[in-house]
Simulated scan of single mutants.
Amino acid sequence: MKTVHDMVDAAKAEIHEVSVGEAEAAISGADYLIDVREDDEFHDGHIAGAINIPRGLLEFKMSNDEGLCQRDKQILLYCKTSGRAALSAKALKELGYSQVSSIAGGFDAWVAAGKAVVTPKLPDFD
């Protein structure tokens, strides 16, 4: 019986991952940088310029948004450690997106490399 780790490994064999060292160039060349983590994870900190589309909604959002449904756009995905992003990249490839990549090691690798993180601040109501 397959495990989720088997599924992630299989997905990674079919997708393109960029290293954290290559990520800044990939981000500048991407039409969309998509963080597939959950909303609370995104609000705790994310890569500048990222849009948040949680993994569970990705295919629906991509298919129903006029801008996102263009299958030839450069899309770069990331999540916490790269598993959700790999599954997301594979799913988008299956939907016909031709230029999809993910960041190897995900957000954790980005932070460990000392890269900049955006941390939104909630308004102070005091």
Results as ranks from 00 to 15, higher is better:
residue 6 D to V: 03
residue 125 F to Q: 07
residue 81 T to I: 02
residue 86 A to Y: 10
residue 62 M to P: 00
residue 39 D to V: 14
residue 105 G to S: 03
residue 41 E to T: 02
residue 80 K to Q: 14
residue 39 D to P: 14
residue 101 S to N: 10
residue 92 L to I: 03
residue 5 H to A: 09
residue 53 I to N: 03
residue 88 S to N: 05
residue 7 M to D: 11
residue 50 A to K: 10
residue 102 S to T: 11
residue 114 G to I: 04
residue 14 E to S: 13
residue 25 A to C: 03
residue 28 S to H: 13
residue 120 P to H: 06
residue 50 A to Y: 12
residue 69 C to T: 00
residue 90 K to T: 06
residue 72 D to C: 02
residue 95 L to C: 00
residue 15 I to V: 15
residue 94 E to K: 15
residue 26 A to I: 01
residue 103 I to R: 09
residue 48 A to Y: 11
residue 70 Q to L: 11
residue 117 V to H: 05
residue 37 R to F: 12
residue 21 G to Q: 08
residue 37 R to V: 04
residue 2 K to M: 06
residue 47 I to C: 07
residue 10 A to V: 02
residue 32 Y to N: 10
residue 32 Y to M: 07
residue 67 G to E: 14
residue 115 K to G: 03
residue 120 P to E: 04
residue 122 L to Y: 12
residue 119 T to L: 11
residue 2 K to A: 10
residue 108 D to C: 04
residue 39 D to E: 15
residue 34 I to C: 02
residue 124 D to M: 08
residue 4 V to I: 14
residue 54 P to L: 11
residue 75 I to H: 11
residue 31 D to I: 05
residue 1 M to I: 06
residue 6 D to E: 10
residue 38 E to W: 12
residue 3 T to K: 03
residue 30 A to S: 15
residue 108 D to R: 15
residue 71 R to D: 00
residue 105 G to L: 02
residue 58 L to S: 03
residue 115 K to S: 04
residue 20 V to E: 04
residue 92 L to E: 09
residue 46 H to Y: 12
residue 108 D to E: 14
residue 31 D to L: 01
residue 105 G to K: 01
residue 17 E to G: 15
residue 41 E to M: 10
residue 116 A to R: 13
residue 8 V to F: 09
residue 92 L to T: 00
residue 123 P to D: 07
residue 124 D to E: 14
residue 70 Q to D: 15
residue 99 Q to Y: 10
residue 23 A to G: 07
residue 82 S to P: 05
residue 43 H to W: 11
residue 118 V to S: 04
residue 96 G to P: 12
residue 49 G to K: 07
residue 2 K to T: 02
residue 19 S to Y: 03
residue 20 V to S: 12
residue 47 I to E: 08
residue 104 A to M: 09
residue 36 V to Y: 09
residue 29 G to Q: 05
residue 104 A to I: 01
residue 27 I to N: 04
residue 60 F to V: 04
residue 25 A to V: 07
residue 97 Y to P: 08
residue 114 G to L: 06
residue 97 Y to T: 04
residue 94 E to P: 03
residue 31 D to P: 06
residue 54 P to N: 09
residue 108 D to F: 08
residue 118 V to A: 04
residue 111 V to N: 00
residue 45 G to E: 06
residue 3 T to W: 11
residue 55 R to V: 07
residue 19 S to K: 08
residue 10 A to Q: 15
residue 92 L to M: 15
residue 58 L to D: 00
residue 53 I to T: 07
residue 97 Y to Q: 11
residue 59 E to M: 09
